[in-house]
Amino acid sequence: MLQVRDLHVYYDKIHAIKGVDFDVKPGEIVSLIGANGAGKTTILHTISGILKPTEGFVKFQGENISSVPAHRIVYMGMAHVPEGRRIFAQMTVLENLQMGAFTRKDTVQIRRDMEKIFTRFPRLKERMSQLAGTLSGGEQQMLAMGRALMSNPTLILLDEPSMGLAPILVDQIFSIIEDIKAMGTTVLLVEQNATRALSIADRAYVLETGKVVMAGDAKELLANTDIKSAYLGG
């Protein structure tokens, strides 16, 4: 599904990503974990085309997308829920979801998918004609995820979906991520909450200052004592 090879990314002169390799296979939840500033968000931005790598490449479904404009990558079936949700605050919930389906022309199917989103997120249906900026943090996160799902993606990138949410909402968000996988969409998940991320992921990569320092089965990483002391607060 996704291959990242020898990826190097610079912010001006700062070498943020220093040769990262990883894979995501169809149907998996893969998690990137690591401390603040490890480069997780930068990697997601490079995959979705907002940043361009100086070296290395990103292949999506066998195609090198390193130089494809970001908006074209969405048409290829990749959705990205950015950090901080970035919903369109001055537009209604419904309009936000319509923007999520911007790449699509199949009106009938779009309406069906919207019904599915409303079934999964009943709060969004209640607030359909409300401005998105008036939603609570948890509702905004659900809207951001629903909006991304409206593009009917084969791969979804989630950047810190649980950030700033109350524990009960964090539970909901993680159960939604498992639903997304169950519906057949592959997930690449970036999280600070490493314990939770590892508990739902199939595999994970641990990042430290722009490099992968450990990789493997999520359950094994969860049990690993080094990881525990470094990232899981144990």
Binding site: A70, A79, S151
Partner: peptide
């Protein structure tokens, strides 16, 4: 219209609009 809504989206958040597939 779809283009009109995209205009409003772009005026609010260009990066998020790009992630919707909108050609800013």
């Amino acid at each position: 219209t779809k283009t009109g809504k995209a205009m409003r989206a772009v005026s609010q958040d260009k990066a998020a609009s790009t992630l919707m597939g909108i050609d800013v």
